[in-house]
Design a binder for these strands. Structure first.
Length: 764
DNA sequence: TTAGGGTTAG
């Protein structure tokens, strides 16, 4: 053990062992009048050693008392104690022991205190064994203040006493106190006291102390004990010294599943997934008895490396051992299959779990989110709520995510309130998901309120709020938050820069965007990726600097990906550049032939130049590949009910009113009508289009909002695809004519229309 | 003494 000092720096010298003194003495027990025992109680209890002929005076009452206590019937215990008092029957030390154990088990501090008071009143000189019981009860009930008082008053502290108090402080994380008491104890420490102390050490800063404890263990002759060595190896894992853990592990002549698991956890946390897999293989070869913990960690490893074959083999192994239906194996199995993209297998694995718990459900819910089935995850959540199943904060975090994607503000706000009531808002994780949820549901103000409530927002939380403002096209706020983030000493990461560059992109801030991209590595220590260059391509493209965008694609230090060309292509459409559009589309078609964007944009570009033959070629290519444009639809929530619209849809009960409202706008602006006809839509020809334009889904939703919401409220409409220019103009006009604030979220960003202007400055 | 699930993105 080269790096472990054999000297002890802070810890106490080794004392001679103290033998626990048992002051148990004969207790005089009177017999109660049996008629005083209520008829409804049972004298049956599981004490095979107590036979009828052995029953002495008062023993039956104490046996009954213990029986009540073992059943957790503390109320009846109190009542029966009263009866025993009235009958003058003494309570035996074993009865007290049992009652204190029950109070500890149920965590009932008040009952524990009351019984402790009784003991003080009735027994003048309680034996040490009982004092230890009281001490343990207070520790288990979480009251270290009471425990310390009892400890201070104790005259005879034995090995057990020190063990209880030191372990309690260690487990509560009051390490200074635990070590302090351990130092002054002058006892020969037991295995368990070392295990408790070692267990409480986590983090690199405690590594030195851990080494000292290790040294202490060796000097005490307790090394080579499998439990203690396991605790030492796991301590080194938790303190981040994997080599130390390996040294201990390799020296152990006898190893249990716990130490194997611990080391595998260490490898996993350090990202050494291959090492974890190798260790597992070794474990199998050595014929180590497997338990559910081994499977849970190794399945996590398989999910991490996305090794479906290996995971399936391990799954099979767990089936052979009959462990797959165990919740601790079945749950990580579900997660493993989700991570490997095999959702069907995940569902099958879930069905095998005999008693799924909240973690199992959270895996299923997040699984549905990962495969994009957000409605399904919400459905399960609602089902669990109805069934009064125990939920956890992980589930709420996933549901916030689902509400964000579904843009369901109504549900999101309800779930938020529910999470507060149940106390299941996860620190930072849940809160950050809520920031994103409110932003994506159109409520930057609520998102900011959540952000403001965070005491110490981390990088991810800052990123969420920055991205939120960027999504709404509010570059000033997004960039100001980016500056504030640095003032607070929080370092940005790669995603933060995506948010910053997006903000620049949505507001036409070309110079700023360039400055941020160039300073990423030098000033912020964040390595730019192709994603960041794609953002810059987007900034140039939207601003009409198409040649610059093209040059950047050619000279950037990465192979351009589909997004690089897609961004350029988008700019080529906005700025009607056919030549560069052709290059962009050609490259995009090579990288992602199934992306409909290239076909649609090229059709539009050619059509806008009147080159119909070429345009038709792209429609033909799309048909040839059996590619269809997604059906466009929009939705609006009014009085908690969602109303969705598809272009030309006349099935809504209020269709007549909606169409007459649309006519109000179309008939009042002929010029605008003419402008609408200049755009082309791939889903229909020019002549068809003239008829269809007024029916675009977002217009139906806006018209519905104008009719059925009160005059002073904002109209919030969501669209699954990007809004077309005609509809963008329509919304501007509607906001001017009606004086209403209209907010439209398309697949790209938020548009806030007010008095004829849009927050995007027509820059979308 | 050991394990499994959740946050930010164009």
């Amino acid at each position: 053990m080269p790096s472990i000092n054999a000297h002890c720096f802070l810890l106490p010298p080794l004392p001679s062992p103290v033998v626990a003194q048992d002051k148990f003495s004969e207790t005089t027990i009177k017999s109660a009048n049996f008629s005083q025992i209520p008829q409804w109680v049972s004298l049956k209890c599981s004490f095979p050693s107590v036979k009828t002929h052995q029953i002495q005076q008062g023993q039956v009452e104490n046996v009954h008392l213990i029986s009540l206590s073992k059943q957790g019937k503390l109320k009846q215990v109190h009542e029966f104690l009263k009866l025993m008092d009235e009958a003058g029957v003494s309570v035996s030390p074993h009865s007290y022991k049992s009652i204190f154990e029950t109070c500890a088990k149920l965590g009932s501090l008040s009952d524990g205190r009351s019984i402790h008071d009784r003991l003080r009143r009735t027994v003048k000189d309680p034996i040490g064994f009982l004092e230890n019981c009281v001490l343990r009860m207070y520790c288990d009930c979480g009251s270290l203040v009471d425990a310390q008082n009892v400890f201070d008053e104790m005259l005879d502290r034995n090995l057990v006493t020190w063990d209880i108090i030191v372990s309690a402080y260690a487990e509560k994380g009051v390490l200074d106190k635990a070590i302090g008491l351990f130092t002054i104890s002058r006892i020969k420490p037991s295995h368990s006291i070392y295990i408790s102390l070692l267990r409480s050490l986590t983090g690199f800063s405690l590594l030195e102390l851990g080494k000292q404890l290790h040294s202490h263990v060796i000097r005490n002759g307790l090394a080579s004990n499998v439990s203690v060595d396991t605790a030492i190896a796991n301590m080194y894992v938790k303190c981040g010294w994997l080599e130390g853990a390996e040294l201990v592990f390799n020296q152990m002549t006898e190893k249990n599943a716990v130490v194997w698991t611990g080391l595998m956890v260490g490898y996993t946390q350090a990202g050494k997934l291959e090492d974890a897999l190798e260790l597992f293989t070794k474990m199998v070869k050595e014929g180590v008895q497997m338990d559910e913990f081994v499977f849970s960690i190794i399945l996590k490893v398989c999910g991490g490396v996305e090794d479906l074959t290996m995971g399936r083999q391990i799954h099979g192994y767990s089936v052979k051992l009959g462990l797959d239906s165990d919740v601790s194996v079945g749950t990580p199995l579900v997660d493993f299959y989700v991570k490997c993209g095999s959702f069907e297998s995940a569902c099958l694995a879930f069905e095998r779990i005999s008693e799924p718990n909240d973690v199992s459900w959270s895996c299923v819910i997040s699984g549905y989110c990962q495969v994009g089935e957000f409605e399904e995850s919400v459905k399960i959540f609602k089902l669990l709520k109805r069934k009064v199943v125990v939920l956890n904060s992980f589930i709420y975090t996933s549901i916030f995510q689902a509400c964000a994607v579904l843009a369901d503000l109504n549900l999101g706000a309800q779930v938020h309130a529910d999470a507060i009531k149940t106390g299941l808002v996860s620190y930072l994780y849940g809160e950050t998901a809520m920031i994103s949820m409110y932003s994506r549901c159109g409520r930057s103000d609520y998102a900011y309120q959540v952000f403001k409530s965070l005491e110490n927002p981390d990088t991810v939380a800052w990123t969420a709020i920055i991205c939120g403002y960027a999504y709404h096209g509010n570059a000033i706020e997004a960039l100001s938050l980016f500056n504030r983030m640095q003032d607070c000493g929080v370092r940005p990461n790669a995603v933060t820069f995506i948010g910053v560059l997006t903000a620049c992109s949505h507001s036409g801030l070309v110079t700023e965007g360039k400055k941020y991209l160039e300073s990423m590595r030098g000033k912020y220590g964040v390595e730019p990726t192709v994603d960041h260059y794609d953002c810059m391509v987007d900034i140039y493209s939207r601003a009409g600097l198409l040649q610059e965008a093209f040059e950047l694609i050619k000279c950037m230090p990465f192979e351009p990906d589909a997004m690089s060309w897609k961004s350029l292509l988008g700019g080529c459409w906005t700025h009607r550049n056919l030549e560069l559009g052709k290059i962009a589309a050609e490259n995009l078609l090579q990288l992602d032939p199934d992306d409909t964007a290239s076909y649609i944009v090229m059709y539009n570009l050619y059509a806008s130049h009147g080159i119909w033959e070429e345009a038709a070629h792209f429609r033909w290519m799309m048909a040839e590949r059996n590619l269809r444009k997604d059906i466009s639809y929009s939705w609006i929530t009014v009085k908690g009910k969602m109303h969705s619209f598809v272009a030309g849809n006349r099935h809504h009960p209020q269709t007549e009113q909606i169409y007459s409202k649309l006519e109000e706008f179309t008939s009042s602006s002929d010029n605008a009508e003419n402008a609408l006809l200049t755009e082309e839509d791939v889903s229909c020809g020019l002549s068809e289009r003239k008829e269809q334009l007024p029916d675009h889904s977002e217009r139906l939703a806006i018209a519905f909002g104008l009719i059925f919401t009160s005059r002073h409220t904002q109209i919030l409409v969501f669209k699954n695809l990007r809004a077309c220019k005609d509809c963008h103009d329509f919304a501007k006009r509607a906001s001017l004519v009606t004086g209403r604030e209209i907010v439209v979220r398309d697949s790209n960003r938020f548009h806030h229309f007010k008095l004829g202007k849009c927050s995007c400055n027509d820059y979308w």
